[in-house]
C-alpha cells in the first residue's frame, strides 16, 4: 500500500490500515525504545505509547519528512520522557528508604546474565549501557541512533532537528567520553 494513502486511512481511523501500520513498524519502534531504555518491558510499554500517540495525532504529520523519521522522533522523545519520570520515581523511592516504608517496588533492572549466555559479553553490555546513560542526553541519542540503529548523520539530523555538523560533533564528543567512562568502569570493576 502507498504510504500516503495508508496514513490518510489511519487519519480517518481505518482500523485495518492502523493494524497494517503497527505490524509493519512495531519491531523498529520496539528496538529504538529498547536501545534507549535497555529494558524489554519498558520498551514494550513505551512503544505502545508511540503508536497511540501516532493514532491520536496523525493529522499533524505534515508529510515533510519520512514516516520513519517521525516514528524515530516520537520514539526517542517518549523514551527520554520515560527515563526522566523513572529518575523522579527513583528519587521518591529514595525518600521511601529514608522514611523506612516498604520498598519492594524498587526492583533493580535485570542486568544479570541469563543462563547459557556469555557472562563476559553481558558484563560488557551492562558497562556500555551504564556509560551511555552517563553521557549528556544529546550525545547518547546521537550515538544510539548512529551505532545501534545504523542511521546516517543526515537521518539523525532530521530526527533530532539539528544540523548534520552538530550531529558529527555530538557523535565525536560522545565517543570520546564513552571510552573514558568505559575505562573508568573497567578500572574499578
Amino acid at each position: 500500500m502507498n504510504e500516503k494513502i495508508l496514513l490518510e486511512k489511519i487519519a480517518s481511523k481505518d482500523e485495518q490500515a492502523f493494524q497494517f501500520f503497527v505490524e509493519k513498524y512495531h519491531q523498529m519502534v520496539l528496538n529504538i525504545c529498547n536501545n534507549i531504555l535497555n529494558n524489554f518491558d519498558d520498551a514494550m510499554d513505551i512503544s505502545q505509547e508511540v503508536f497511540i500517540k501516532i493514532y491520536e495525532s496523525i493529522e499533524s504529520f505534515r508529510g515533510e519528512s519520512k514516516i520513519t523519521t517521525w516514528l524515530y522522533r516520537i520514539s526517542v522523545n517518549k523514551s527520554l520522557n520515560h527515563l526522566r519520570s523513572k529518575k523522579r520515581q527513583k528519587w521518591f523511592s529514595g525518600m521511601d528508604i529514608i522514611f523506612n516504608s516498604d520498598n519492594d517496588k524498587n526492583i533493580p533492572e535485570d542486568v544479570s546474565p541469563k543462563p547459557g549466555e556469555n557472562i563476559e559479553i553481558e558484563e560488557n553490555k551492562k558497562a556500555l549501557h551504564l556509560a551511555l546513560n552517563k553521557l549528556p542526553k544529546k550525545q547518547n541519542i546521537a550515538l544510539t541512533l548512529n551505532n545501534f540503529e545504523g542511521l546516517t548523520y543526515k537521518e539523525i539530523a532530521e530526527i533530532m532537528e539539528i544540523s548534520v555538523t552538530e550531529v558529527g560533533v555530538l557523535i565525536n564528543r560522545g565517543k570520546k567520553k564513552l571510552k573514558t567512562l568505559l575505562i573508568d568502569y573497567f578500572k574499578n570493576n
Binding site: H26, Q27, I121, L128, L143, N147, F148, G150, K179, L182
Partner: peptide
C-alpha cells in the same frame, strides 16, 4: 579487551524480534 569488546557491541543488532499479538 573489555573496552574493545564493549565498543564492538556498538553496532546495529537484531535486537528484539517481531512480537506476536503486538497489535
Amino acid at each position: 579487551w573489555n573496552l574493545k569488546q564493549s565498543l564492538d557491541l556498538l553496532k546495529p543488532t537484531a535486537g528484539i524480534a517481531e512480537q506476536a499479538f503486538y497489535y
